[in-house]
Amino acid sequence: MTDFDIPADLRYTEEHEWIRKVGPTTARIGITDYAQSQLGDVVYVKLPDIDDEVVGGDSFGEIESTKSVSDIFAPLTAKVVAVNENLDAEPEVVNSDPYGDGWLVDLEVADEKTLDAALRDTLDVEGYLAVIEG
């Protein structure tokens, strides 16, 4: 069994992002505890601007650690409605609190049916565990 924190109430992607439904048409996105541990100490996060459109499966930002730069992928096609600007000053929160204050962006889609359908296409805890445990 993994030592990483994988909350049961979230959805996950194979690219190690988590998704939390925070409104009927809105989802909050971040990277998982596993992802932050594999990246190392996060020193910079490049995020899109509010009102940007992101495309599911495409890169919409970057996370830089002391070791490398890695892409962040959009789990669904949507509009950016909020960005965690606190990460400009405190990028290390992505390491210390990946599911809380280390969130990245909020994405909004046209209607709840679209969001629910997109979430069904993502992974539950067991599915994500299978990804990280190989």
Partner: peptide, 10 residues
Amino acid sequence: AEPVDVVDYV
């Protein structure tokens, strides 16, 4: 190799 481990690679 998957899952990708960037720290290990570096």
